[in-house]
Design a protein around this nucleic acid. Structure first.
Lengths: 334, 334
DNA sequence: CTGAAAGCGCTTACAG
DNA sequence: CTGAAAGCGCTTACAG
């Protein structure tokens, strides 16, 4: 492969001149610039990324730590990964995607060896073991998901409390008095998925204020447990007129169950959920829902990270930003 | 950050000795080894990846080129990405995941700049624009999916022809004489997704040999077109007793349609498909199907690539390997 | 407007 | 068993 030295030789200039022509960091006479450019074309020169990284202390790579749980519904993850990858590329960064089970170890590996300029953590838990090593790393980090201790990190998440209140308000406004509430699988809570209880607690509190009856249930993640669980819940609560589902797997499995029972939406039951537009389209979900905006969250995380990587001083104090929930009315309530 | 020089100083040895202690490429007296190790622990030293890459010409990174199409069903992609990432890590490699729209350009960028030691291409088309630049790159490449010209590349794919024949044989053996065949969306064919016609053509040919009636249709990718299309097909072919579905989106949308029409499987209609176990579980598909084994394919691609990256000479001639299809009987035929 | 040189942090022949 | 030195391919002060 051609090096910067080959280009310099072919163009009859020094290596530094080629480097400056590449970076534009000093003025080059148009004559030499042209000689350099044709030499580059001729030799098909592309700067070696490792050498550049060594010289500049910048890799132009962002580490993306993805976490998969067997008992979690997977298709949702891609909705975060893609926008993050796109946003990174737009800012000139590539993505090193790490899916190792041992997140803290993987994180230390890529930060200590300076493989990346910054890190995005996905699917962050309340007491996420990746957070302390990220905080200790010399690279900045941005999180998608709210941990207990956010100090020193940029954090982005949906406002799950507000989302729950909006849904309860919506149903209350329509006159519903008895509401089924389906939460994520209890493993999500055990694992510290704070969004689970942030949503549920807010819903319960709001319902209590209105004097509504609310029937909380944990959800399942796999068939046939999903359908069985839905059937059992509906059997137990024949007087409920509305249902709030905060569980991707459960709401994806809901249509056939309602269909089989002859329950019409919204005539017999009002149903609301919280999922992304893409997810709803994927599973053809006809339900009014809070949009979870994975693309907004991912992009916001990358933006903040890029800012901090490129100009650590001007980036200011770390932020915790909640995306405001928006209700998409699909006509499944009344 | 501590460098190898700091460690050397702290341990009272030369930098080369530290390096050799790290790599184990020459014998070190246990005494010096211990001094070095405690110095490493003390300073928290991790070798700089960029410097190492520069010195060794090895990045220990694999480029993974993912391609997303808006009219394609996305959840399937993750099933390939994850096993590839896992297999790479087991072999000591990290994954640089590239999702850019301009695949050829992205490919040149990461190979020309030596960011990666090798490349895996996912979702390969018949005349895939990424293949020529990959062939031109100095790094080896492995493909998941069969292109027209496989020269110089390791290629892994399911044997879609054999898969189609197995399904036709299966239905023929049960006495079916009229079969509906649902293919991927026609865009998949336009785009050069060879698996579409490899499967379809083999099915048609096999059916012709048996003298079976086969009714071929293209599928849709989005609701409500999916349901409408299924309904229309079933309306058109009331005499068909079996259905072969080679389309993730269509088969995921099939259960509610059959349910609504009161069609019982397998009593009224035998249904077979071709999808992965994970996919089937995700959508609770109760259909006998050919297992597409994305994990096997991904892992095989990584293995071949690692072999070629680590020992280009002994790796031998490039291979085109078809994974043998396996039928998973879920009792949806008779 | 341009060049010679030092330096980024490693590895690995060469030497002893 | 260990060290001094060259080299990987860049960037960037320093100098003119």
């Amino acid at each position: 492969m051609a090096t910067i030295g080959d280009v310099a030789k072919a163009a009859g200039v020094s290596r530094s001149t080629v480097s400056y022509a590449l970076s534009g960091k000093r003025t080059i006479s148009s004559e030499t610039r042209e000689r350099i450019e044709s030499a580059i074309d001729l030799l098909g020169f592309t700067p070696n990324a490792g050498a550049r990284a060594l010289a500049t202390s910048q890799t132009m790579v962002i580490g993306l730590l993805v976490q998969f749980f067997r008992d979690e519904f997977s298709p949702a993850m891609l909705q975060y990964v893609l926008p993050i990858s796109d946003a990174a590329r737009e800012a000139g960064y590539d993505i090193l995607m790490v899916t190792e089970d041992d997140g803290p170890k993987a994180l230390r590996r890529i930060t200590d060896s300076d493989m990346v300029d910054g890190v995005v953590l996905l699917n962050v838990a309340h007491e996420d073991e990746r957070v302390p090593p990220l905080r200790a790393a010399r690279q900045p980090g941005a999180l998608v998901g709210l941990p207990k201790d956010t100090e020193g990190l940029d954090v982005f998440d949906l406002d799950f409390g507000e989302a729950a209140r909006m849904l309860v308000d919506h149903l209350h406004g329509l006159g519903h008095r008895e509401i089924i509430l389906i939460s994520p699988h209890e493993h999500v809570i055990t694992r510290g998925g704070a969004y689970a209880w942030r949503f549920r607690d807010a819903a319960l509190e709001r319902a209590a204020r209105y004097g509504l009856r609310i029937y909380p249930y944990d959800g399942e993640t796999q068939q046939p447990a999903i359908s069985e669980s839905l059937d059992s819940i509906l059997d137990q609560r024949p007087t409920a007129t509305a249902m709030i589902v905060h569980n991707d797997a459960m709401i994806a499995g809901l249509p056939p169950v309602l269909n089989a029972r002859g329950v019409r939406v919204p005539d017999d039951l009002s149903v609301v959920g919280i999922f992304s537009e893409d997810f709803g389209r994927l599973f053809s979900l006809p339900y009014t829902a809070i949009e979870t905006s994975p693309d907004k969250l991912g992009r916001a995380a990358v933006q903040a990270l890029v800012q901090r990587m490129q100009d650590p001083d001007s980036a200011g104090a770390p932020v915790v930003r909640f995306i405001a929930p928006e209700l998409t009315d699909r006509g499944s309530t009344r």
